[in-house]
């Protein structure tokens, strides 16, 4: 009887300790996406309040490379920003990005011997669909492409397709800034209108417009 009481007492003690620790430890705070984007003078009117889960910036060769990943519920927004980048370089770079993404769904060299990767050619219905939409007053090519559960593009086997993404690159000439935006949603609930609305909602920040 004494032993049981002791165990109950210990359990209560641990429970209280956990509660105290939770109270003392400040909750992890995340910036929202727009708070990070404002430094580039832009904001997303839709999806901009998504909590940032990764914010990685590094300087290289006089440029800033910035990767921001924000996720709210099942929608994940990945933005890569390069600043400054000349318009000529940005045009070439953008073109190469579309080629790279499209080529992920082209014929592949078998990476493993064995039966698991017998499908080395992507069926047409699994290849990226290209549409044109307008972002910040300019036409932008968008690729709607399949991805894995870990948000990796270039997958076409049915059991591996867990996400679908809208991929786009665009260039802000006034600020010499290049953006690569990928918006993911689970493939089963992927809503192209919702995703495109997020993309189209990229706007100059009001303060930037005043300037």
């Amino acid at each position: 009887m004494k032993k049981i009481s002791l165990i109950i007492f210990a359990a209560i003690l641990i429970f209280l300790l956990v509660i105290i620790l939770n109270i003392v430890t400040p909750p992890k705070t995340y910036d929202i996406l727009n708070k990070v984007l404002i430094q580039y003078g832009v904001q997303l009117e839709k999806g901009g309040s998504s909590p940032v889960v990764r914010d990685f910036k590094f300087p290289a060769k006089g440029k800033t490379f910035h990767t921001i990943i924000a996720q709210e519920k099942e929608t994940r927004i990945e933005i890569e920003i390069i600043k400054p980048l000349s318009e000529e370089a940005a045009i070439n770079y953008s073109e190469s990005k579309y080629i790279i993404i499209t080529s992920l769904y082209g014929p592949q060299i078998i990476p493993y011997t064995g039966a698991l990767t017998t499908i080395t050619d992507c069926p047409d219905d699994k290849k990226p669909e290209e549409i044109i939409t307008e972002v910040m007053g300019k036409p932008v090519r968008v690729l709607l492409a399949n991805a894995t559960e870990r948000y990796v593009l270039g997958v076409w086997e049915d059991d591996l397709i867990k996400q679908k993404a809208a991929f786009a690159v665009l260039y802000d000439r006034e600020n010499s800034t290049h953006y690569q935006i990928i918006i993911f949603q689970p493939s089963e609930s992927f809503d192209r209108n919702v995703v495109l609305d997020i993309l189209k909602s990229l706007k100059k920040h009001p303060k930037e417009l005043e300037n």
Partner: peptide, 18 residues
């Protein structure tokens, strides 16, 4: 190839983060 103007080299931690 044309347009590929940045060639990344990565240093990652044990969790795979860059």
């Amino acid at each position: 190839g044309p347009g590929i103007i940045f060639h990344p080299i990565y240093l990652i931690d044990m969790k795979g983060n860059i």
